[in-house]
Each structure stands twice: as structure tokens, then as C-alpha cells.
Design a protein around this nucleic acid. Structure first.
Lengths: 155, 155
DNA sequence: CACAATTTAGTTGTGGGCAACTCATCTAAC
DNA sequence: GTTAGATGAGTTGCCCACAACTAAATTGTG
């Protein structure tokens, strides 16, 4: 049927790109009252799951490198949601701790996923299948933030 | 099973966010030889489908506003892929035209979607279903770049 | 112990992406 | 014809995201 391999709508990439923006846009008005952007919200989710993570662990969990995380964490710290402490055992690692305010913010956020899901208009089964397919994509191109500097490529 | 409504992996948003980044990262090495970034590639796809579109049409097609498109198009023009011409009938509209170099670039790009799809490791039927679900998401939160300034909200 | 290789955060530079604005032009209503 | 409102493109400011780099600390090896 489709004769143009470069047609925007016939590929996966554009719908993926586009729906990601749609979902982030849907989050925006829900997160604005909390004073969070969407990536900041993801960091908070990771910290609500497990407080006191090092920056490196957080980066692997979210697929973000230090060039993204460092300034983002600085903003979260400036707005009083987290604190950063340089480790004593290993002085390279910086541990990210929720402040009491940051921990309390969880209560304001707990209703957001359900509200958002309702907006998407997907059946529960569809959501399960969608999550499975997206996870499959992530697993292929390893989710790791991709060591970019060349660590002696063993070729 | 799941008791934490804020768990990163149990929602749709994080897999969506994460797989979008994975796919863009997979495109990067394929697009680098063409001298294109992923958003620039999307603009080229739109122009290869239909040359000579006004900036506004391009923006609606891709879901991007002028704040994103204007500098992006300026870079594409600087690298010789497109030209911009201000309209004569309506002097507000700027029409984007492929240069011969930009049109020729299509030949270099035509094999990319297949190469990328192979990397994703999805069955053909899975890809069809995934595209359907993503399109459903896009349709809910209107794909329009969302007029942000308030044009006399008729409330 | 000495020293190379690795790891951790951070910084800089470039390119999206959106909000909010400006400016010019066009259209509609009068 | 004037003028109010709408529209198209652009700019500014802020935030994310990645590449490439730096500096400091740690680990491993001889």
C-alpha cells in the first residue's frame, strides 16, 4: 500500500516523537502547581522510590548523563526539594536526599498518574500492551546513557 | 500487584519518554553522515513529502511552534538544504523550498527507516499495533502546537 | 609505594522545545 | 477608508539533552 518509505506517518519514529510530546504537554498543567517540570518530576519519582541515591545511579535509572542531571539537580536543590551531600567514604560520589518538603510533595503528586491516564483514553489492556512494546524498544538500544567518550573500544 | 501509583516503570510516561530517547539515539549515527539532527530530519521528511510548504503548515504538521522552527530552519538554510522565500501575495508567510542539494539528500535517506526498524527488533504486527496506540495518544491531546497566548478564551 | 586507568561530577557548547512576547501584515466590521 | 482583531514569523528567556571535555578521587597493577 505504502510506496514512500520516508512517509512521516507510516514510520514508528514520528508517532513516537509526537506522542511523547503530547504526553509531556498533558503533564505540564498538572505539574505546574507543584513547581516541577516533567524531567524534574521523573527525578522525584526515582527519589520517592528510593531516597538517597548517588547521581550516577539516578543517571542510569533515568537514562540521563551528568550534563543533564547536574544543572537539573541544582535547580531542584535551589527550590528546596532535594539536598546534595558529597560522600565521605568515596568523595567522588554525591548523594541526593529528599528534603522534608521534597518528600511531602509526593502526596500532591500521587493522584497525577491516574488523572493523566484518564486523559489518554486507552483501554487498560491497550496500556499494558503499549508498555510492553515500549519496553521492548528500550531494551534493544540499551537504556544506558551511552558512554560517549571512547573507553578504549576493544575492537 | 502494584501498590505504588508513582512507580516509574508501571506508568506509560517513563517508557514512552525513554523509548523516544532510545529511538532518537539510534537515528543519530545514521543521520550524522547526512549532517542532520533528528528534528531536522523530520522537517526534511515533511518537505520530501510536499515541497514548498509555509512555515505555519510545517509547524502544524510536525507539532512545532515558530520558536522551535525558526532557528531550526535557519540552520537548515545555512547548511544549504532549504531556502526561505517571503510570499508576495501574503507577505507574512514564508515558504520553505528544498534546494537541489536538499532534494538530492532524499536518496541518501531512503534506506534509513528500514535500517532503523531492523534495530528495534519488533515484529511487523507489533509495529502496526504500536503505531495505532501511539496515534491514539496523539489524537487525544490535540497534536496542534497549542496556541499558548490566550486568544480571548470564549468562556 | 608509584603510576596508569577508571570512575564520578561538573562545565561548556550546541541544538531542540515551549512560553511569552514583538512586529508586520492581513481581514473584517463598520 | 479606518480601525480592531487575528494571523504569520521571529526573538528572548528558560529548561532539557547530548558530546566533549576537566578535575578530583579511587582502583588496580606492577
Amino acid at each position: 500500500m505504502q510506496i514512500n518509505p520516508l512517509a512521516l506517518d507510516e514510520q514508528l519514529c514520528f508517532p513516537l516523537y509526537s506522542s511523547e510530546k503530547t504526553v509531556v504537554a498533558a503533564y505540564r498543567p498538572l505539574l505546574a502547581p507543584l513547581g516541577l517540570t516533567y524531567p524534574q518530576y521523573l527525578v522525584m519519582l526515582a527519589l520517592w522510590e528510593q531516597d538517597g541515591q548517588p547521581v550516577s545511579t539516578l543517571g542510569r535509572r533515568l537514562g540521563l548523563d551528568s550534563g543533564t542531571l547536574s544543572p537539573l539537580l541544582k535547580r531542584l536543590e535551589a527550590s528546596g526539594r532535594i539536598q546534595r551531600h558529597r560522600g565521605t567514604a568515596d568523595e567522588r560520589v554525591v548523594t541526593v536526599q529528599l528534603t522534608s518538603e521534597g518528600a511531602a510533595l509526593r502526596e500532591d503528586a500521587v493522584g497525577i498518574p491516574a488523572r493523566l491516564f484518564a486523559q489518554l483514553g486507552l483501554e487498560a489492556a491497550e496500556a499494558v500492551e503499549l508498555r510492553r512494546l515500549l519496553a521492548k524498544i528500550c531494551s534493544t538500544g540499551q537504556a544506558t546513557p551511552a558512554r560517549t567518550d571512547n573507553p578504549k573500544d576493544p575492537s
